[in-house]
Simulated scan of single mutants.
Amino acid sequence: MIGGLHGATRHFFCGYCMSWLFTRPEGVGDFVNVRSTMFENAADYRPFIETFTKEKLAWASTGAAHSLDGFPPEDRFPALLSEYASLSE
C-alpha cells in the first residue's frame, strides 16, 4: 500500500501492521530504499548513508559512513554505490 505522500516519491507500507517497507524516490530510476528493519538480523547492518540530517534531532546519531543534509546529488551515486559494493567484497 502507498503511504500518506501521493506525489512522485512513493512510500510503501504493510496494510496489516502499518510498518514502512520501502520507498521509491522521485527521479532515481530503479533505486528502491528498503527499510533496514525489513532485514532479518537488522542489528548486523551498519548504516552506510543517512540523509536529511538537517532535519534530525541533535542527539540522534546512526554512525553512518556518510551523513548528508538531503539526498546525495545524482552525480555522487556512482561513487557511493561503488564504495558500498566494495564493503561486501
Rank of each mutant, 00 (worst) to 15 (best):
F31V: 15
Y84E: 07
H6S: 09
A79H: 05
C14T: 04
F31T: 12
D44G: 09
D69A: 14
D75L: 08
G27R: 05
G4S: 15
G15M: 02
W59S: 06
Y84V: 04
A65I: 08
G3D: 10
D75Y: 07
F52H: 15
W59Y: 12
M1W: 09
E40Q: 10
G27W: 03
P25R: 01
S86K: 09
F52M: 12
M18W: 10
M1Y: 11
M18Y: 12
S19P: 01
A43I: 13
F13I: 07
C17M: 06
F71W: 09
F22P: 01
A60D: 14
V28I: 09
F12E: 00
G29K: 03
P78T: 06
E55N: 15
I49M: 06
P73K: 14
F48Y: 14
G70W: 09
F22A: 07
R24N: 01
A42G: 06
L5C: 10
R35H: 08
F12Y: 06
T53A: 08
M1F: 11
R35G: 02
N33V: 13
D30R: 14
I49D: 00
A85I: 06
L21I: 12
R24L: 03
L21V: 13
W20A: 04
Y16T: 08
L68N: 02
L68T: 02
E50M: 05
F52G: 07
K56M: 11
N41Y: 10
I49C: 03
F12P: 00
P25V: 02
S61P: 01
P47L: 06
H66I: 11
F48L: 09
P25A: 07
F31H: 08
W59M: 04
S36H: 07
A58C: 07
E83N: 05
T62Y: 04
S88Y: 13
A79W: 02
G63D: 06
K54A: 12
T51R: 03
T51W: 01
Y45N: 10
W20R: 03
A43D: 15
E83V: 02
S36Q: 07
H6W: 05
P78Q: 08
W20L: 08
T62C: 03
F52E: 07
R24H: 04
H11C: 01
A79R: 05
F13G: 00
A79M: 07
G70V: 06
A64S: 12
E26S: 13
G4R: 14
A79Q: 09
A60C: 10
D75P: 01
M38C: 15
F71V: 03
A60W: 12
N41V: 06
T53Y: 02
D69N: 12
K54H: 11
H11Y: 03
F48E: 00
A60L: 14
R46Q: 14
E50L: 04
S19M: 12
T37F: 04
F31I: 14
S67R: 07
H6Q: 13
H11N: 02
G29L: 03
T37K: 05
E55D: 15
S61V: 11
